[in-house]
Design a protein around this nucleic acid. Structure first.
Length: 305
DNA sequence: TATATTGTTACACC
DNA sequence: TGGTGTAACAATAT
């Protein structure tokens, strides 16, 4: 499940590979995955083209100038004042294969079945072809992810981009900013608070569980109930856990793989996520699971107060 | 076959 | 008006 650390990993590994590459062709195999901003559409002269054809037509011959991240959204900057927004949602993948690896017909391991799969697979919905012979594959088992092509002058109108809260890992996100956010939502429970993209950007189910274990706080505690030292621990937890996870290239839970096909290694360090029914590494108590707002979370009933 | 999965949004309620 | 909580939605595997 790609959250901030996984998306950051994808961006860091794609940036040097994609920068200055020229797109020679885009193949859209499932049109519901792609969309275009209204200004982008109005720039296209051939009105009769299908959405997928328009998408491919605009991208053809564009160069990639940068690859960035905001919250869990990947932003691929393009020449000609366009940007491609990519959201991986639950099961999206971006896999990059250069000419050499394509020729060797390298097979990637499916994380559920551990069977080798070659690309494109039945879950490959969009393929980017570059002029140097390399390819970028967008795969998505659940088909919840999307690729949205927008013009630079309409990027501010992308609602989700405008509404994201602060980036937790930037240095000017301080405890003071964080407490301001806490004060805005006194009644919320801690886990849903952490997962709200408008309050702090980029945290999902895995890292909310891990951050709360680090901070020794129960997911069901209300924001209002936190004393100052607990607010500080929670803030420290956000910074520490996310930074460690980025360092380990994220967690390969579910379908997440890096653009190289390699796994993220932070899953080895999970203390509570996915450990329901197992013993707490710290105190030996059985890790419990709970449902909050329809989401399953795990916590240690003894370590987290 | 019913269920679980997640980020996001729609909507009801106060 | 806006904070809050819940349900619904997308598609698939098991």
């Amino acid at each position: 499940m790609p959250e901030l650390p996984e998306v950051e990993t994808v961006v860091r590994e794609l940036r040097p590979r994609l920068k200055n590459k020229k797109i020679s062709k885009v193949e859209v195999r499932l049109s519901k995955i792609v969309s275009l901003g209204s200004k982008t559409v109005s720039n296209i002269r051939q009105h009769s083209l299908s959405k997928a054809k328009k998408f491919a037509a605009v991208l053809k011959n564009k160069e990639i100038t940068d690859v960035k991240r905001r919250a869990k959204l990947i932003i691929i900057d393009l020449s000609g004042r366009y940007a491609l927004l990519v959201h991986l949602k639950m099961t999206g993948q971006l896999i990059f294969l250069d000419k050499k690896r394509l020729q060797r017909k390298i097979k990637l391991l499916n994380l559920e079945t551990f069977q080798p799969v070659s690309l494109p697979s039945k879950w490959t919905h969009v393929i980017f072809y570059f002029t140097d012979g390399s390819k970028l594959f967008f795969n998505d088992l659940r088909q919840f992810g999307y690729l949205k092509l927008v013009a630079d002058n309409e990027i501010d109108q992308v609602k989700e981009l405008a509404e994201f809260g602060p980036e937790p890992l930037v240095t000017n996100f301080t405890i003071v900013n964080f407490v301001t956010k806490l004060d805005q939502r006194p009644k919320m429970k801690l886990k849903p608070f952490l997962m709200d993209q408008k309050l702090v950007a980029g945290i999902g189910n895995i890292y909310s569980d891990e951050i709360l274990f680090f901070a020794k706080l129960k997911p069901t505690r209300t924001v209002r109930s936190l004393i100052q030292s607990e607010q500080a621990r929670l803030f420290k937890g956000i910074k520490t856990i996310l930074a460690r996870a980025v360092k380990k290239a994220g967690s390969s839970v579910g379908d997440f793989v890096r653009p190289s096909g390699d796994w993220g290694k932070y899953g080895l360090y999970h203390k509570v996520y996915g450990r329901s029914g197992m013993k707490c590494f710290r105190c030996g108590t059985m890790i419990k699971s709970l449902k909050l707002g329809g989401r399953t979370g795990s916590f240690c009933p003894k370590c987290q107060k």
